[in-house]
């Protein structure tokens, strides 16, 4: 191997600082969440304890965070499944030009770049004027989809840009119908990318704030509950909650990444060339 230039070490140091910048604050509140019972929001640590985590489990101290967690989890799953299905379908649609495809594409981009509070406000107004009750599973669900679907669609564009069409042609030459081709050839090849779409769908929903703010109704999702806490909770209990939900997010990410790994390993072992095209 050739010798590394000096610039490598400078850039590596820069990268290291960037990673520290990304993770440092999160690690800090991770440490501070073990603050002793008399400790405050910053250093020094007054002893080490699980006091603030215990506090989280006492309803009256912090409000309904477990209910909020359950709602966010359920909503995350709903958004995830919908995002995967709708993104794949529209990804397939966009492979060919159809009437209005350009308009739909610009709608998706608008959905991505529109200030989130407009979705919140607009959906809230519509439900209000129609006399419907806003609820996290209806208005909140739809509003979050406007955030997750464009991401799913963009990932599908990336996937199909790299997709080798000769697999499909081979299937069709052998007499497969359009549906059989999709079901037995296209979907298995793009499956690992779908895990990526699912990861986006779940985590973007689970952490979504601005689009859910005016559309979730009387039952808060977890991010809304956390935000409510920032205005009236001044103890490290909020760090304990932050640490737990961050660990939960890390767990979810690990599960998704592991399943991608297992899937591609299994493929390699079966000696199939499926997926090489991706």
């Amino acid at each position: 191997m050739e010798k590394r230039p000096v610039s490598f070490y400078v850039l590596a140091a820069f990268f290291g600082l960037f990673v520290l910048f990304l993770y440092g604050p999160t690690l800090t509140i991770g440490i501070l969440s073990f603050q002793g019972p008399t400790g405050g929001l910053t250093f020094p640590m007054r002893g080490v304890s699980l006091h603030w985590f215990r506090e989280l489990f006492e309803q009256q101290a912090v409000g309904d965070i477990w209910g909020a967690f359950r709602r966010s989890f359920a909503l995350g799953l709903m958004v995830m499944v919908t995002t995967v299905v709708v993104s794949v379908m529209s990804g397939l649609a966009f492979r060919k030009r159809f009437k209005g495809s350009a308009v739909l594409f610009y709608m998706a981009i608008t959905s991505l770049v529109i200030p989130s509070i407009l979705i919140s406000l607009g959906v809230g107004l519509i439900f209000n004027q129609l006399g419907l009750k806003i609820h996290w599973a209806t208005s909140g669900f739809g509003s979050q989809l406007t955030w997750t679907l464009p991401f799913g669609l963009l990932i599908m564009f990336a996937v199909f840009n790299r997709f080798d069409k000769s697999y499909e042609e081979a299937a069709r030459d052998q007499g497969a119908t359009q549906w059989q081709t999709i079901r037995h050839v296209v979907l298995p090849i793009i499956a690992p990318s779908l895990i990526g779409v699912a990861l986006f769908g779940f985590t973007l929903s689970y952490d979504e704030f601005a689009r859910t703010l005016l559309t979730s109704g009387s039952y808060n999702t977890l991010p809304l509950e956390v935000f409510g806490m920032t205005t009236n909770v001044t103890t490290p209990v909020i760090y304990a909650l932050g640490t737990l939900t961050t660990l939960f997010s890390f767990g979810i990410i690990a599960v998704f990444l592991l399943s991608v790994r297992i899937m591609s390993k299994r493929r390699a072992k079966m000696g199939s060339d499926v997926g090489k095209a991706v």
């Binding site: 649609a93 159809f98 209005g100 959905s111 679907l149």
Partner: peptide, 27 residues
């Protein structure tokens, strides 16, 4: 291909119509 395309793009169109376009018009 226009019909197939539209059928596949229908769910996306419905969601964006109801939760993006309608809210913008409402605003």
């Amino acid at each position: 291909r226009h019909v197939t395309g539209w059928l596949q793009a229908l769910p996306l169109t419905v969601v964006l119509g109801a939760f993006l376009i309608a809210p913008i018009i409402m605003i």
